[in-house]
């Protein structure tokens, strides 16, 4: 197995007495789609927040491509090539879809402390923005204010903003949440497409989707890692079935 692109060592985050994430040690291999599943309150989103720098860990460490990024602020993590999308749609509501993605694309310039030339004349940023819009399927909606598009489209935009930053590693927190069947199918297709040349870490409740795209699974319960393995192993694991999957109807 190749060197992991991201790994955590004994990573913990406590909120008072609550151990939201408890001594999690995980390795994420490059180029794979690694899904993290588990019941509500298992600590999945907290884990993503720790990986993205939105939260600081109470203890433990995180390494990205061999570099220690424990406690690094989100903008540093982002600039190293880790993109993330949020479970609760987190966009710039008053901006158009184009402007939303623009801000992601512009952040890949060396600096935005530029005061003279109009932003729209930066061709590389424009190209990145248009690419991201095309990938997330919003080219036609580019100049619509993002508060006016449908909820499903906002979820697509959420992914588009992340893609505009051209990350190597994508942290996706329930990308399908609140989507209709058709939109979900679209996004699953997009995730498969992205899997070809990105590493994906995915939280998702829709098991069909998980088994459709993931080639590695981690089950979390109560802040701890219960088991990690390939999809068929996880599906077959008695401990997992008992703790999470119930009577074992996986589908997909």
């Amino acid at each position: 197995m190749s060197e992991p692109i991201l790994n955590t060592l004994d990573l913990s985050r406590h909120f008072g007495a609550l151990r939201a994430v408890d001594a999690v040690t995980l390795e994420f291999a490059p180029g794979r789609v690694h899904a993290i599943i588990g019941p509500n309150g298992a600590g999945k989103t907290t884990l993503i927040n720790l990986l993205s720098g939105d939260l600081k860990p109470s203890s433990g460490s995180i390494r990205f491509k061999g570099q220690d990024i424990t406690g690094a602020p989100p903008y540093v993590v982002s600039r190293l090539g880790v993109g993330r999308s949020y479970q609760k749609t987190n966009i710039f509501p008053a901006f158009t879809c184009f402007e939303n993605c623009w801000l992601g694309a512009q952040s890949r310039e060396r600096t935005s402390m530029r005061f003279l030339r109009p932003a729209r004349r930066y061709r590389s940023v424009r190209e990145r923005t248009e690419r991201a819009l095309a990938l997330c399927g919003l080219t036609e909606r580019a100049h619509v204010v993002s508060s006016a598009i449908s909820h499903g489209e906002q979820r697509q935009l959420e992914i588009g903003m992340m893609l505009a930053t051209e990350p190597e590693l994508l942290l996706l927190d329930e990308p399908l949440a609140g989507m209709g069947a058709e939109e979900a199918a679209r996004v699953i297709g997009l995730l498969r497409e992205l899997a070809a040349d990105h590493t994906l870490i995915l939280i998702e409740h829709d098991m069909d989707a998980v088994f459709a795209v993931a080639d590695r699974l981690t089950v979390m319960v109560n802040g701890r890692v219960l088991e990690t393995g390939d999809p068929q192993d996880i599906r077959a694991s008695p401990a997992v079935q008992e703790a999470y999957l119930g009577s074992g109807e996986g589908g997909g």
Binding site: Y86, L103, M113, R114, L116, A119
Partner: peptide, 27 residues
């Protein structure tokens, strides 16, 4: 001019949603 330049785009982002602007890679 400042507002149309890249700097202006970033500060507008900060006003609209600072946490997200940070997550997109801006200090």
């Amino acid at each position: 001019m400042i507002l149309r330049a890249p700097f202006g785009q970033v500060i507008r982002g900060i006003r609209a949603n600072e946490a997200r602007t940070r997550a997109l890679g801006y200090p």
